[in-house]
């Protein structure tokens, strides 16, 4: 097993150079996919039998909800890598993923709430998924707040890594508890994000939107990571050269 590849992955300089080449293409692809998925879903799908046109919110709600959870799990993985192998790039990734994940979690909550109004008649409902998503938002806030409260960079890295790992262990427990709590108190039986048999006309734009959002996340993460690398490695010669060369994104 050639481990040099693994360790090369951890080199900020290598990552900066490789990502610089790929970024424009990824960005274009992400933009295209997102435009396709969202306009298709918004304009070119038939209205839902039960929910009418309000179901179109699904093309925003489901991708952001998936991503909010997926990003947190990625942060936990980055945290584990930070603690085990002390790879700086992993900590940088954790730091950069947090604001993206928070914004998606926030959007998922908002879209879920707005969707609830025409569907269930209220702006907020303590349904299991929305409540779990709210708690996930608290977890995100915690990581960001902890990073801001600690001064030393190495301590920040490892403290946030531990917090994220504890949080990720907590997530299944929370999901289970909230699900249990909700079935106990649930009056209505409609589930918000229930995807019964989705007609293919609706499924395809949804899948494209999900993939588009994942790609969008990757692109934004790469941009943030590149800036973070420049910031942390600013004393090195290669950063000076890259900046002087007037590197764009």
């Amino acid at each position: 097993m050639n481990w040099t590849f693994f360790h090369k992955l951890g080199s900020p300089k290598w990552f900066y150079e490789i990502s610089g080449k790929w970024l424009p293409w990824l960005a274009i692809l992400a933009a295209l996919m997102m435009a396709t998925g969202l306009t298709w879903g918004l304009l070119f799908t038939p209205p839902d039998y039960l929910q009418g046109n309000s179901y179109r919110i699904i093309f925003l709600h489901v991708p952001t909800a998936f991503l909010a959870s997926a990003i947190y799990v990625s942060m936990a993985i980055a945290g584990a890598v930070t603690l085990i192998w002390r790879i700086k790039l992993a900590d940088m990734a954790l730091k950069c993923m947090a604001p993206i994940g928070t914004s998606f979690c926030f959007l998922a909550l908002l879209t879920g709430a707005i969707w609830g109004k025409p569907t269930w008649g209220t702006w907020w409902v303590w349904d299991a998924r929305l409540t779990s998503m709210l708690i996930l938002l608290f977890l995100y806030f915690g990581v960001i707040a902890l990073r801001g409260a600690i001064r030393s960079a190495t301590t920040q890295a490892r403290a946030c890594a531990i917090l994220t790992l504890v949080g990720v262990v907590n997530i299944p427990i929370i999901k289970f508890s909230v699900q249990w709590w909700n079935t106990l108190h649930q009056g209505s039986t409609l589930k918000l994000t229930e995807k019964p048999s989705m007609a293919p006309e609706m499924l395809w734009p949804l899948l494209i939107s999900i993939a588009a959002f994942y790609l969008f996340f990757t692109v934004v993460l790469i941009i943030r990571l590149r800036t973070e690398i420049l910031d942390r490695e600013r004393r090195t010669k290669w950063v000076r050269n890259a900046v002087e060369a007037g590197a764009r994104s």
Binding site: I135, G142, L163, S177, V178
Partner: peptide, 14 residues
């Protein structure tokens, strides 16, 4: 408080 509350929620629920 912010860090501990998500951990307390399952305990509270049960």
């Amino acid at each position: 408080t912010l860090l501990s509350l998500p951990l307390y929620i399952p305990v509270l629920i049960f």
